[in-house]
Amino acid sequence: MSTQMHAITVTVNGKQYSRQVEGRLLLSDFLRHDLLLAGTHVGCEHGVCGACTVIFDGAPVRSCLMFAAQTDGHRIETVEGLAADRDHLHPLQQAMRDCHGLQCGYCTPGILMTMKVFLEDNPNPDEAQIREALSGNLCRCTGYQHIVEAVQLAAERMRK
């Protein structure tokens, strides 16, 4: 089969990119290999682990279950867009650091992107709500306790 290419223009972290993509190119691979934004991690490629979670038009989604060709004219946020600069982490990132919310860090980008939108929708969540919101992100290292604490701390700081 000849490989047909599709012209897309997509806004990632506020910056517009125009590229030619093959239909079967996953959004996760497009971000990592074409745009060289390798902060979005790939774990399972079937929607289970959550490492590849990015924000698509304001909603956290699995980038391994979308095609790059579907993003033409849309807006994506990845972990690279979270911090204002090297010295000013996003409150969630700072809290993850302060609470030891990561060990190997493989799951962290997906968790940050999920929790960013979660805290915008629920600025004052209780522990049960945080655990429920975290249920779509696997972490093999931390046992989740410190992640929950980090989200609580970030929520507290962001309310101030």
């Binding site: 929607g47 979670t53 956290p60 999920t114 779509g136």
Partner: peptide, 12 residues
């Protein structure tokens, strides 16, 4: 609904 998959899956 809350029992179906995870929030990120339910967004799509």
């Amino acid at each position: 609904l809350p029992l179906i998959a995870h929030p990120q899956i339910r967004n799509r």
